[in-house]
């Protein structure tokens, strides 16, 4: 006879564990980088005390802290938008990049960046350019989400819907290629760098804006916990439980589109975190109940993104590994594991 811990207790336990892990990873990220700064010095700098070296102060405040916070927020944002998509399409393989939403956001950014002829370079956005990139990404993401939503009314099969999403992604990518063809060399270069993914795209001055937008999206998703639980039973049951399905679908579209757009505009299309992290969270918690699953997914996403960023920093003085070279290495095995074990995994049945 196996004893079962009540789900809520398990939720608190894992939330605690992941919070500690996240804090440790934040510390590790602040210490890692191409320049060796002693831990004590980093600590002093963060508390505004004079450090032994002015360059160190600059590095910690202008580079490491924004990098760290961006990774944390992006991880939470991508993971929660992945979870919302998986629940609302009742498809465990849904995720912003697979359904073409990231591509839509990329197209928006590409339009802004390439049409701007490289003046709007990644990481060095002027404020107007930076808002242009965000609104471009948002428009692109919502457009693709809208198309997917329309198709989901016509395509009953989940697998077919995923394939339709992948097709949309291809079409959008070809549009981006075309834009690249006509763009200036600098534009193409900055777009390519952006496309490899990088949590370092947010400067300290932009950080409050970025954080505000990401947190707004996260709060919106938290507010959808109750209807998300009802949607686990499918639309007809959800409607019978008093859920205004149309409105909730619209809000889910907005929340996932918004979170994906904000992340993509700043950090490029980051793959696999949205797909894999909700599965990790479900396997840890052993529940599909969003009351505990959503917060734990966010924390888990933050921890995974920080871990990815840490791996990116590994080469030290030789620079950074592109983010999108790291996330699939961590994410793909999770998905393969989930697919292989799907008969034994509760939430699949």
């Amino acid at each position: 006879m196996k004893t079962k811990m009540p789900e809520s207790h398990k939720g608190f336990l894992w939330a605690g564990v992941l919070s500690v892990l996240t804090i440790l990873l934040v510390a590790a990220n602040l210490l890692a980088g191409s320049v060796d700064i002693p831990a004590a010095e980093v600590w002093r700098i963060l508390f505004g005390q004079p450090a032994g070296n002015d360059a160190w102060t600059f590095i910690v405040w202008e580079s490491r802290l924004p990098l760290c916070m961006t990774a944390l927020l992006c991880g939470a944002a991508l993971a929660s938008s992945g979870l919302m998509l998986q629940t609302s399409f009742s498809n465990p393989l849904a995720d912003p990049s697979i359904l073409g939403i990231s591509s839509g956001a990329s197209l928006g950014v590409a339009l802004v960046m390439l049409a701007g002829g490289g003046t709007v370079a990644a990481g060095a956005f002027s404020f107007s350019g930076f808002f242009a990139a965000v609104s471009g990404a948002l428009a692109g993401a919502l457009l693709v989400m809208g198309i997917i939503l329309g198709l989901s009314a016509m395509i009953r099969s989940n697998v077919m819907l995923l394939i339709a999403g992948i097709m949309i992604g291809y079409v959008v990518s070809s549009a981006i290629s075309l834009l690249n063809f006509f763009a200036t060399a600098e534009g193409v270069h900055s777009y390519m760098i952006w496309g490899m993914g990088n949590f370092g795209g947010v400067s300290l001055a932009q950080l409050p804006w970025f954080a505000g937008m990401a947190v707004a999206g996260l709060l919106l998703s938290v507010s959808l916990v109750k209807p998300l639980n009802a949607l686990l039973l499918g639309e007809r049951y959800a409607e019978n439980l008093g859920v205004n399905v149309r409105r909730v679908r619209g809000l889910l579209l907005l929340a996932t589109g918004w979170l994906t757009a904000v992340v993509t505009a700043f950090c490029g299309p980051v793959a696999f975190i949205g797909l894999a992290v909700p599965h990790v969270a479900r396997l840890l918690l052993g529940t599909s109940n969003h009351n505990s699953l959503l917060p734990v997914t966010m924390l888990c996403g933050a921890a995974v993104a920080l871990l990815c960023n840490l791996i990116c920093l590994l080469p030290g003085e030789w620079g950074m590994i592109p983010l999108n070279a790291v996330t699939p290495v961590l994410g793909a095995p999770v998905i393969v594991y989930v697919i292989v074990r799907q008969r034994r995994i509760k939430y699949f049945n």
């Binding site: 686990l232 039973l233 499918g234 109940n289």
Partner: peptide, 12 residues
């Protein structure tokens, strides 16, 4: 309401 189809809520 109770419907025909089997609900996909194995994780609850």
């Amino acid at each position: 309401l109770v419907l025909t189809e089997r609900v996909q809520a194995g994780g609850l």
